[in-house]
Design a protein around this nucleic acid. Sequence first.
RNA 1: GGCGUUAUAGCUCAGUUGGUUAGAGCGAACGACUCAUAAUCGUUAGGUCCCUGGUUCAAGUCCAGGUAACGCCA
Length: 570
Amino acid sequence: MARHLITSAIPYINGVKHLGNLVGSQLPADLYARYLRMRGHEVLFLCATDEHGTPAELAAAKAGKPVAQYCAEMHEVQARIAEGFGLSFDHFGRSSSAQNHTLTQHFAGVLADQGLIDEVDQRQIYSPTDGRFLPDRYVEGTCPNCGFEDARGDQCDNCTKQLDPEDLINPRSTISGATDLEMRATKHLMLRQSAMKDTLDEWIDSKTDWPVLTTSIAKKWLHDGDGLQDRGITRDLDWGVPVKRGDVDWPGMEGKVFYVWFDAPIEYIACAQEWVDAGKGTDWERWWRTDKGADDVTYTQFMGKDNVPFHTLSFPSTIMGSGEPWKLVDYIKSFNFLNYDGGQFSTSRRRGVFMDQALDILPADYWRWWLLSHAPETQDAEFSWENFQASVNKDLADVLGNFVSRITKFCRSKFGEAVPAAGEYGEAEHALIADLAQRVARYEAQMDAMEVRKSAAELRAIWAAGNEYLQAEAPWTTVKSDPDKAAAQVRLALNLIPLYAVLSAPFIPTAAARMLDAMKVPDAGWPDSVEAALATLSPGHEFEVPEVLFAKISDDNREAWAERFAGDRT
RNA sequence: GGCGUUAUAGCUCAGUUGGUUAGAGCGAACGACUCAUAAUCGUUAGGUCCCUGGUUCAAGUCCAGGUAACGCCA
C-alpha cells in the first residue's frame, strides 16, 4: 500500500470561511483523503489556520482582544466547523505554533547560508501614534490627482490612479486615524526567487500531468514581464515569527517578523510535528524528510487558484533553495472560484453562505454533495439556490435516499426485516452485477485522477442503476406470481445498500454511516470485487428500515435562505 | 490603461493531440410503473458551439479582429 501526504491550503484566521473557500481546498482534499484511506493506503492529511499578518491584528483589535487570544479562539471556531463538515484532518494545526516558529527561522537561516536572501533598505510610512509601520493600503488621504478624500495609499478608488502613500495630501492611518505620519528608513529581507527561476521552470515543465490551471498560473508568473520577481519576506509587526537566522539574532532585523506568505506553507511541515507532539503520531520526518523515509511518499496539495503562485514558486523556492532533503510536492490540484448567485461571495458585505451558517440550516452531507458535484475544476462555478435545491432533492433524496427507502420498506412488507433466502439470481441479476463492476472501475479511475465532478457523476449513475434494476424487474409484480424470484430480486437490491454506502462515504460520510448502521453492517470495506461485495448481506441477515436519509428542501426554505444570505444592499 | 480567462441546449456544465449525425444531469412534453420521500423508469423535443474573417480536405477545437462578462497587475 502506498503512503500519501495530503495538505489543504490553510485558511486565514480572521473569520469563518465561505463555501467557495471550502470547495476550493479543504473539501476536495478531504474527499481524496477519505478515498485513499478506504482503498487501504496510509494517509497523513494535514491542515491548519494561517494566523499571522495585519488582517489578524486588525480583526483582533476590532474584537477588543489580544491577538494571541483572538487567534486561539478563532482556531477553535474553525476547528469545530471543520469537524462539523466531516473534514477528516489527521491534525488541524496553527501557523503560530512553536514548531512553526522554529522551523521558519531555520529555513530563513539555511536560505541565507545558500545566498538566497538579500537585505534591502527601504523607506516606509511610520505612525508614531500606532507605534508601527503602515502598509500602503492602511494609509488614506486626499488624492493629489482628483481631490478624492478617501484615496488609499496604493491607489485612488475614485480616479484609479496608482499612488505612493507619500503623494497623499493630509495622509492618515486607517487604523487609528492618526495624522502624524512620517517616512522612516527600514531594512527588509527579500527571498531571491529570481535566482531559482530556471530550476522552477524546469520543474514545472516536467509536471505534464498537472491541471492546466496549475501550470498555466505558474508559467505566467515565471515568464510574465521581467520574469519571476524577488519577494519581501519580512514585515514590521508584532504578531508573527520573529526574524532570526536559525536560532541566532539577525542584526538589523530587530522587532520584525516574517511575512505571512513565508511562514504559512512551512506550517505544512510544522503541522506534522504538531501532530506528533499532540500524541497522534510518532514520526513526522518519515513524511517530510526524503533521507528519513519520505522518498516513497506521494504528496498532493489542494488549493484555490489564488494560492497557486505560493505553492508552485514561493514554497518550492524555500524547499529547493534550502539544499536540504525536504519532500517536494508531487501533484498540485487547484480549483477556480465559486460564485454566489451571479456575483462573488463577499465577507465584508455578508453576501453568500458561510460555513457556520451552512451547518445551521442543513446537514454537512447536503453541502458536501452539492459542492463536490459542482466543484469549479475547469472554470468558475456558480451557486444558486434553485440549482442547489434541485440537485440535492433529485440526487440525494430521490435517487439515493428513496432507493434505500423503497427497497427496505418493500422487503419489510413482503418478507419481514431480514434478507430473504429463497430464489436464485438470473440473467438480469448477473447483468446488473457486471454493469456495476464496470461502473465501479470507472468511478475508481476518476477518483484516482482527482476528477471530482466526474467522480460524482459516476457515483450518481451507480445509484441510478439500482432504481433502473428495480423498475425493470418490478419485484412488487413478481411477488404475486413467483415469490421465490421476488425474494432473490430483493436480496440483491438490499445488498446494493451497503455497497452504495461504502462507495459514497468519501462524498457523504454521515449518510453512508447511517446506511451501514441500518443494514447492521459494522465493518464494510472498499469492495475488492463487486460480486463479492453484493453478497455482504447473507440470507436471514436482519436489518432495520432507516429513517428518511435526506429530507427535501422546500420552496419556502429555498426562498427564505435566498433572502437571508443575499447580503447587505448597496 | 496593460495582461489574462471565459463565451456550447431554458439551467448547471462535459467536449482529449482539429476528424462521422456536438454530449450529460436537471428542467419540459409524452408514456410506463404504483414498492417508495408524488419518489422511480423509458421515449422525445430543444443548440447559427458569442459575431466577422482566415488557415485546412476538414474548425466548437487553430489564427486575426470585434463584442460581452469576469479576474489580475501597475
